[in-house]
């Protein structure tokens, strides 16, 4: 495809582990390890996985806030990882980010007006005398009144603050919005409103989303394609429908079986995949397949060979899996209908 807005190619991010008096580097945390992902115009790609699997680091690396150890980040075909200074600032304007906690991502000493106008000023998008008008437009786009301009973020509720953060991101006129757990800190009713706002913005402005979440029900509602990550590595990537109806990777199956179903009978009847133990340390990941230490179907081969990232078919976007035992159309079906009923709540 040529209309891809954001491409991550073999993206790796690592952090040094320092020890001792001299703070020598004794090892590396491979936070993100060889991630390949591309997002087309108007598409929503979700990134899911447990805490600490590198989802947020992927977002920060895509934004160029955390440096990539290797690999490339292409925005509209322009490589961000090789850009510096003003070139980088201009290139990543088309990609904006919404953070998890709006309380900490909004500068508490600035009024909402000052916060939302900042992208307009730094990128010289709107002349000075039209800025206030534009801020008003942006605020009404996210469903806030004009009177918000002179108030401070702490005077708003969590959901309203997240709307302010979204308005700020929109001010830069982005094509891609990276939502890093953008709904995780909101309560359920507000969460639904923000999800609806994001859906509306996509249809009105043609935005693409990289939607990072651990809320699988919300992901199912929003995403076109879903990538599952574990310990910084890609596990599975396919379209939304295929992933929820016939997941190929044992880790995905385990994640899906952890989504609660609001019907007690179904909840009791369904088969649960319970993972033993904790996520292994990313400083010394297991050999071969990183998931093998907790995998219910692990064999000897899993410790020896790193599973290939291969297409097992199904769906227009393909069905990519990193597992030795993934079969083309998976025989395991989960109760998709029950998850759907939960999604209406969230």
């Amino acid at each position: 495809m040529t209309d891809e807005l954001l491409q991550l190619e073999k993206l790796c991010v690592r952090f040094p582990v320092r020890r001792g008096v001299l703070q020598r580097t004794v090892g590396w945390v491979h936070a993100v390890d060889g991630l390949d992902l591309s997002i087309a115009a108007g598409e929503t790609v979700a990134l899911v996985g447990e805490s600490g699997c590198g989802k947020s680091t992927t977002a920060l690396a895509a934004m160029g806030i955390v440096p990539a150890a290797s690999g490339r980040v292409l925005v509209n075909g322009k490589d961000l990882t090789s850009s510096r200074g003003d070139e980088l600032r201009t290139a990543r304007r088309r990609m904006q980010m919404v953070f998890q906690d709006p309380t900490s991502s909004l500068n508490s000493r600035m009024t909402v007006g000052q916060i939302v106008v900042e992208p307009l000023i730094v990128h010289e998008l709107v002349e000075r005398d039209r800025q206030r008008e534009r801020v008003g437009e942006l605020l009404s786009t996210v469903g806030l009144g004009d009177d918000a301009i002179e108030r401070f973020p702490h005077e708003f509720s969590g959901g309203q603050r997240q709307r302010i953060a979204i308005a700020r991101a929109l001010a830069a006129e982005p094509d891609v919005l990276i939502c890093d757990e953008a709904i995780a800190s909101l309560d359920v009713s507000v969460r639904a409103q923000v999800i609806n706002l994001l859906t509306r913005l996509q249809s009105e402005l043609g935005l693409s989303y990289l939607f990072i979440s651990h809320d699988l029900a919300a992901v199912r509602h929003l995403a076109h394609r879903v990538m599952v990550m574990y310990l910084g590595k890609m596990m599975e990537l396919t379209d939304n429908e295929t992933l929820y109806s016939s997941p190929a990777h044992p880790y995905t199956k385990a994640l899906l079986s952890a989504v609660p179903i609001p019907d007690p009978d179904l909840e009791l009847a369904r088969e649960r995949v319970i993972l033993a133990g904790d996520v292994p340390s990313p400083v010394s990941p297991p050999s071969g397949c990183v998931f093998r230490t907790r995998c219910p179907i692990a064999q000897d081969v899993c410790a020896e060979a790193v599973p290939e990232w291969r297409n097992v078919g199904g769906g227009s976007a393909g069905h990519w899996v990193a597992c030795h035992f993934a079969e083309p159309p998976s025989s395991v079906t989960l109760r998709g209908t029950s998850i759907e009923s939960r999604q209406r709540l969230g």
Partner: peptide, 19 residues
């Protein structure tokens, strides 16, 4: 986060520091 956000929206380092 608000400093990361400022960098993300495209503030130059000087502005990030000042504001």
């Amino acid at each position: 986060d608000h400093v990361k956000a400022a960098t993300a929206i495209g503030c130059r380092p000087g502005r990030v520091f000042r504001r």
